[in-house]
Computed example of a mutant assay.
Amino acid sequence: MFVARPRYAALRARYQEVVEERDEAVKLAAERLSTITRQAEEITRLRDTTPDTPLPQPRPVQGDTELRRQLRLARQAMASLDQQCRTLQSSNEAQAKELRELREGSTT
């Protein structure tokens, strides 16, 4: 089959364009693959595979009700500690008084 020279020249030009586009696509794919590979290696390098300490767990958001409950518990704990402190203080004063009386009794 014979093809006219202008048609052959047009087909040949289009073939060259397709070959150049293919070469560009192959080059672009190779660049992208090398970039992806390099980034994957960087991510692997930066990833901490053995953390030194456990990550802190995020604290739940506290609403007004939770804050009031914690405040009430804190006040109860403070009142309990205050009562214990008063008991110990009175016991200490009683023992100090008894010790003074014993010392005074032993010196007379």
Rank of each mutant, 00 (worst) to 15 (best):
R68Y: 04
D64P: 11
A79K: 12
L46R: 14
L71W: 11
L55K: 08
G63M: 01
L71H: 15
S90V: 07
R72A: 02
S91L: 11
L81C: 03
R45W: 12
R69G: 00
V61C: 02
G63Y: 00
Q89S: 12
A79I: 06
P58Y: 06
L67M: 12
T53E: 15
T87P: 02
R75S: 05
R69K: 11
T44N: 12
R75E: 10
P54I: 15
Q83S: 13
T49E: 11
Q57G: 04
A79N: 14
Q70G: 05
D52H: 08
C85Y: 06
D48T: 11
A74H: 05
T53L: 15
C85R: 15
R59Y: 00
R86C: 01
Q84T: 04
L73Y: 01
Q84P: 03
D48N: 14
P56R: 07
R72E: 06
L55I: 10
T44E: 14
I43E: 05
S80F: 03
P58E: 15
S90W: 07
T50Y: 13
R69Q: 13
E42S: 09
A74W: 04
E42L: 13
Q83L: 08
P56Q: 07
S91M: 12
T65I: 05
Q57K: 13
L67W: 02
Q89K: 09
D64S: 13
M78V: 02
T65S: 08
T65E: 14
R68W: 05
D64W: 05
L46I: 05
L67H: 07
E42F: 07
S91T: 10
